[in-house]
């Protein structure tokens, strides 16, 4: 992970699109005092480099899955990367990190009801070869939640549809 070369124009562009990604290139160009082709080119480059993506966020209350659970996993070190990828493919799982510490994978899951959460933990994750132990905990209240920072990968579309 390296710090990419973003200039002021990139940052201004990202700030505008973070508020509303459906603003036209023409309006952005006028607001920033550059021409439309520059805006189009910059957006394309930022997307191609995997630095930004455009997505729909739905209201937490309107989304069926509103409950957050944390899953800490102890897995066989030799298989940890494959196991993390397998877990990342579960649509209800929203984040998967390989970590240093008492657990080597930390995942978060948005669930509708405890039954479906149990399906993810016992039915799916514990059933993976190389997973030794998991500990789960449930969020009872979310104080802060930033969803504007993400990991842009080609698995992005897996959860859709």
């Amino acid at each position: 992970m390296k710090r990419p070369d973003l200039d002021d124009l990139d940052r201004q562009l990202i700030a505008i699109l973070a508020q509303d990604a459906r603003v036209s290139n023409r309006k952005i160009a006028v607001d920033l005092g550059v021409n439309e082709g520059t805006v189009r080119g910059r957006i394309k480059r930022l997307q191609q480099d995997g630095l930004i993506a455009f997505t729909a966020l739905t209201g937490l209350k309107l989304d069926k899955a509103t409950n957050i659970a944390f899953i800490a996993i102890q897995a066989d070190v030799a298989q940890v990367r494959q196991i993390a990828r397998d877990i990342a493919h579960i649509p209800m799982v929203k984040s998967v990190m390989i970590t240093l510490g008492p657990f080597n994978i930390m995942a978060t899951c948005l669930y509708d009801d405890l039954d479906s959460f149990h399906g993810v933990t016992s039915g799916h994750i514990l059933a993976l070869t190389g997973v030794y132990h998991i500990e789960t905990s449930l969020a009872v209240r979310t104080v802060k939640f930033s969803n504007r920072v993400v990991r842009i990968t080609d698995t992005r579309t897996d959860g859709v549809g």
């Binding site: 990367r81 929203k94 990190m97």
Partner: peptide, 18 residues
Amino acid sequence: DAGIAVDIAKYEFNVAPL
């Protein structure tokens, strides 16, 4: 207790308090 991430396999939340 800190778990330092050495790799992020997935991190995307499509919900927000609007």
